[in-house]
Design a protein around this nucleic acid. Structure first.
Lengths: 153, 153
DNA sequence: CGCCTAACGTTAGTGTGCCTAACGTTAGGA
DNA sequence: TCCTAACGTTAGGCACACTAACGTTAGGCG
């Protein structure tokens, strides 16, 4: 009676997805923006390829998302002089404000989503999900530990 | 340090999503098919509208999914003589076989997804997710309890 | 040096899931 | 009878993830 697991998760995910999209969409953003800005702030500037690895966002999707962020003036793209194949992505001050804004919205979304759960239960859930994620996405789960892949000289 | 909750869920969801899509896609099906056949078998025939409510699949998407299932000979569509607005959807014997096939695949996917978790932990996770789903989708969470909405005489 | 391989960024297109909007039909109450 | 509601259908859009292809740049190696 538990062949429901997989679609149960996808169902909850759908709601999470929708709530995130709504919350972010209300200020003209989307999930990718939040993920990218967070990663850039918490782990520093990076090339697009490195960013994609850190955030688990596909390279091809990154282009568009970064274009949007660049258009909004939230990030800058500078070709790495030491390796001209790379674009070094840096957050602007305006981008930091944006990140704060999105983080706040994310918090609201989260409270809404996890409403019926106590703090303890939320921690348990987070722990379980974290383990699943670590298992399926060995790279860049939370604190990467693998540095030196960024934009260094 | 736990503003990660929401995107953590979406990340895990992405993997679940991918695994399901792969598993189902390997036999020319997709998540909707499994959801629909399961619902039809477990809760009996229904009109499309009722089916949509039970499975949380949008009416407009249902049309296409049912077309696919009908083309495969897994379900039949018959207009309800007592209410000619309705199509009564029924599973064929072939559809039952298909459901078994998909259920088996779903189980494999689930085992893969939840690999690192013990049975006890899986139950805990399922419980937490179930509560979230019940909260956000009051209708048709698992055992609906709300009958009389199907295709009755 | 030239050659080859690999990484990088970019574009185009696909698939899945969820959604809105509109339309014609059928039922059923006012 | 009229009006409203539910039904099924079609067309389209959005978010996220993915594949395939292309030109550019780096760097190893003969």
């Amino acid at each position: 009676m538990d062949h429901l697991h997989s679609w149960l998760l996808t169902q909850v995910a759908a709601h999470a997805h929708r709530l995130v999209a709504e919350g972010m969409g209300a200020v003209g953003a989307r999930g990718y923006h939040y993920r990218l800005l967070s990663s850039l702030i918490e782990e520093g500037p990076a090339s697009q390829a490195a960013l994609g690895r850190r955030t688990n966002i596909h390279l091809s999707d990154l282009v568009g998302a970064l274009n949007e962020l660049e258009d909004g003036g939230f990030i800058t793209r500078n070709t790495d002089i030491s390796d001209r194949r790379r674009n070094v992505i840096t957050v602007t001050p305006k981008g930091r404000d944006r990140a704060d804004e999105l983080a706040e919205r994310a918090k609201t979304v989260q409270d809404d989503l996890l409403g019926p759960l106590s703090q303890e239960e939320r921690d348990i859930l987070a722990g379980l999900l974290r383990r699943l994620l670590d298992h399926h996405a060995p790279a860049a789960a939370h604190r990467p530990g693998r540095r030196g892949d960024a934009a260094g000289s």
